[in-house]
Nucleic acid binder design. Structure first.
Length: 213
DNA sequence: ATTTTCAAT
């Protein structure tokens, strides 16, 4: 079991403030990314490393993560010794915001060039996804097409993060008001975003009713 | 009813 020094863990207040999935997340001018890196060896996956990052001076946290990826996943690009299988990694991350379109594009490109890396994303809130035709929505669809599974965090995910990434001093995770409702609402929203390939092909919703006539 | 968003000052 890998553990971290307390100083490497997120303070409780910081985690709650930045991961709170409230409707109007005023003042969250930072984004946090908690990650778990697993090394895939045959059918087994072993936790290799975990931690958290925060965006820095103009660099979104997702791109910061890509910068560190080489260090986090040794051998990801290397060619192993003769007869040795190339190493495969799985990364799961929990981000306080969903990625912007630029980060999504860069992630897609990166993943296309790195087939031995699998990425699974959980997000607490959806970033600029209110408008039907927002580029951020399109970015999320691109990621899905690139094989990334994206989900909205639910209670069990916050609970897991609290145990894993937060300096929780053994205290139990306490849900805030409306955690569940907000998670359900955002999940529905994300599902709608990911289902709609092309809104123009969707029809007006009445077409499906022809089933009943 | 309305409010925000990986700041800028």
């Amino acid at each position: 079991m890998i553990t971290k020094l307390d100083s490497m863990l997120l303070p409780r207040k910081k985690f709650i403030y930045h991961y709170k999935n409230v409707r109007w997340a005023r003042g969250r001018h930072e984004t946090y990314l908690c990650f778990v890196v697993k090394r895939r060896v045959g059918p087994d996956t072993l936790t290799f490393d975990f931690g958290h990052l925060r965006n820095r001076s103009g660099c979104h946290v997702e791109l910061l993560f890509l910068r560190y990826l080489g260090a986090l996943c040794p051998g990801l690009w290397g060619y192993g010794a003769a007869g040795e299988k190339r190493l495969s990694y799985s990364v799961t991350w929990f981000c306080s915001w969903s990625p912007c379109v630029n980060c999504s594009i860069q992630l897609c490109q990166f993943l296309n060039n790195t087939p031995n890396l699998r990425l699974r994303i959980f997000v607490s809130r959806l970033y600029f996804c209110d408008l039907e035709d927002s580029l951020e929505r399109e970015g999320l669809r691109m990621l899905t097409k690139a094989g990334v599974r994206i989900s909205v965090m639910s209670y069990k995910d916050y609970f897991y993060c609290w145990q894993k990434f937060v300096d929780c001093k053994k205290s139990n995770f306490k849900a805030w008001e409306e955690l569940h409702q907000n998670s359900v609402r955002l999940t529905r929203k994300l599902n709608r975003i990911l289902q709609v390939e092309d809104p123009k092909l969707q029809g007006d919703g009445c077409a499906n009713l022809s089933w009943f006539s």
